[in-house]
Amino acid sequence: MSTDVATTAVPRPAVPAREPVRSARREGWRRRAPLLPALVFAILVTQIPFLVTLWYSLNSWNLVRPGSERFVGLSNYADVFADRVFRQAALNTIVITAGCVIVAMLLGVALALLLDRKFVGRSVVRTLIITPFLIMPVAGALVWKTTMLDPLFGIVNFVLSPFGAGDYDWTSSAPLISVIAALVWQWTPFMTLLVLAGLQSQGRDVLEAAQVDGAGAARTFRSITLPHLRRYIELGVLLGAIYVVNTFDQIYIMTQGGPGTASSNLPFYIYQRAFLGFDVGQAAAMGVVVVIGTIVVATLALRLLFRSFVQEDR
């Protein structure tokens, strides 16, 4: 459809026959021109630093020791793979991302189903539910760490006191769970909104037909609603994972990666190595390893994304 627009909306000027190639090229550049500023900007700000990261990763360089920079080849990478903390941070990243995305999606589907009915105060409840996503993550993490999870004065222990929670210290005894809880709280609204949009795009006639055919609620959900939602769920999981993999705020504020390194994820560990240890070479090598890991996962994910977005264009 879009090519259509281009040829009909803007009539090509009459071109002298001997210059068809040149004018075609000029037309090409005219089309490209509006795109270039954004493209050049994105390349400059994202790709160049990454190339520099690649170079740094081949050097040993400590920021606090000027002149310590020297080429060491791949030895940073050898160190990274031998680093037990790096492996733990990688594992934590997977646990945090998978845990948050899965739980948030399950809650999101449940909430979306509840919100996809007519009832008193529906828009109010929807507003309440999306709010955690709008709260500044740093603010949310601080609220969770203090007023919610504090062992003595926190609400969570107060609510759980009939079950003998006592003064359980969540952020130091169960750091990963605390971080995941704060993240699930933040990301459930995101999943709810996406799934709700999916539910509302469902054809009412199909649902009614199913009802007429005598399908029960469970059956209708399993064979009609769930397949229809699939695209929305995939999209939510994918986009959620892109953001949650980079989680930094909650860990920085709630646990500082601790106790020890128990709740350190890759972004936080690399931050520590770069800005507390000033070890540029090591931090860069870790960054490169993370990117390679991301590329593997993202290539699979992007295929999916393109299936949901671009297919419908043509």
Partner: peptide, 11 residues
């Protein structure tokens, strides 16, 4: 957007 920020923060 998928490029992890930590990979570019050092440079």
């Amino acid at each position: 957007k998928m490029l992890p920020v930590v990979a570019v923060i050092v440079p």
